[in-house]
């Protein structure tokens, strides 16, 4: 209903990111990334820059490495047995794999939303407050204000206004996912990573999340992994197509979807494989 009236990509004033450009100021910049799980090479020499306050989509068939690549930006792969990598990733020109960097600090700047809604088995309020509480914030007025703002930002507040003390597990799947987004926003990140955030949701809930993502672009740099080609086309400014651990093509979404340079991109987008 809403996407018909929207044709946002055509009027984009942002410059297009280039796969290996050094001149642009990227919010996130991956340089020559290789990722290994034991002997298996999951990511093969990918370099890519992500512009501030833009939406970047990673697309590609299952097992192409897009989720692995996404999880590099907040170092969630660190927990996986056998994980190792080469190259580095700059966030605001600082290497996030610097041994001196505190990974907890990084994750306050780079938030994440997962494939399956994963609220904590606590109240709605406490879910959103969690990120603040673990930072040691005790000021209950401050926390309450932040919880409400975040829930409003995630367009959930009006639906649960009177039930903030109810268990988060009593919400519907779509509401839970928006709660997870609110929870991520509450710690005031500047980057939001989304790993197939709508794949477990029905079309209406998915639509709400997409609208929300569009809204959030004003304030956040968003990187979204998606299986859904139409979704990538609808929400993202730039799209990266990954295939078997390599970056095949990266650029303006409109261009990737209408006039890709590589045959393989064309074949994937038109549904000939994947």
């Amino acid at each position: 209903m809403e996407s018909e009236t929207k044709s946002p990509k055509a009027t984009q004033e942002k410059t297009e990111p280039k796969m290996d450009s050094k001149s642009q100021n990227y919010k996130l910049h991956a340089k020559n990334i290789d990722v290994f799980y034991d002997d298996f090479k999951a990511i093969n020499n990918i370099s890519l820059g992500i512009l501030e306050k833009s939406i970047t989509a990673f697309i590609g068939p299952s097992g192409c490495g897009k989720s692995t690549f996404l999880r590099l930006f907040n170092r969630m792969n660190d927990y996986i047995d056998g994980f190792s990598m080469n190259g580095n990733i700059l966030l605001d020109d600082k290497n996030i794999y610097d041994p001196d960097l505190k990974v907890e600090e990084l994750r306050k700047t780079v938030g994440m939303v997962f494939q399956k809604p994963n609220p904590f088995p606590k109240s709605i309020y406490e879910n959103v407050a969690y990120g603040l509480r673990i930072q040691g914030i005790k000021d209950e007025d401050f926390i309450e204000e932040r919880v409400i703002t975040s829930l409003k930002q995630a367009t959930l507040f009006s639906e649960i206004e009177d039930n903030l003390d109810k268990s988060a597990l009593s919400l519907s799947g779509g509401q839970q996912q928006r709660l997870c987004i609110a929870r991520a926003l509450a710690v005031k990140p500047s980057v939001l990573l989304m790993d197939e955030p709508t794949s477990a949701l029905d079309p209406i809930s998915s639509g709400k999340i997409e609208d929300l993502v569009h809204e959030l672009k004003k304030d956040y740099t968003i990187v979204i992994v998606t299986h859904n080609m139409q979704q990538a086309g609808r929400v993202s400014d730039n799209t990266a197509f990954l295939y078997m651990g390599s970056l095949i093509e990266y650029g303006d979404t409109q261009k990737i979807f209408t006039n890709p340079e590589k045959d393989r991109t064309q074949n994937y987008i038109t549904g000939r494989f994947g």
């Binding site: 907890e104 600090e105 997962f114 399956k116 994963n118 904590f120 673990i134």
Partner: peptide, 27 residues
Amino acid sequence: VPSSIRDASNALGASKWQTIWHQILPA
């Protein structure tokens, strides 16, 4: 305890101990 809970806590900037204390142990 589902690993998704651990992921959620870690991704919010919780330290290992905080995740254990606030999520894993209560659950």
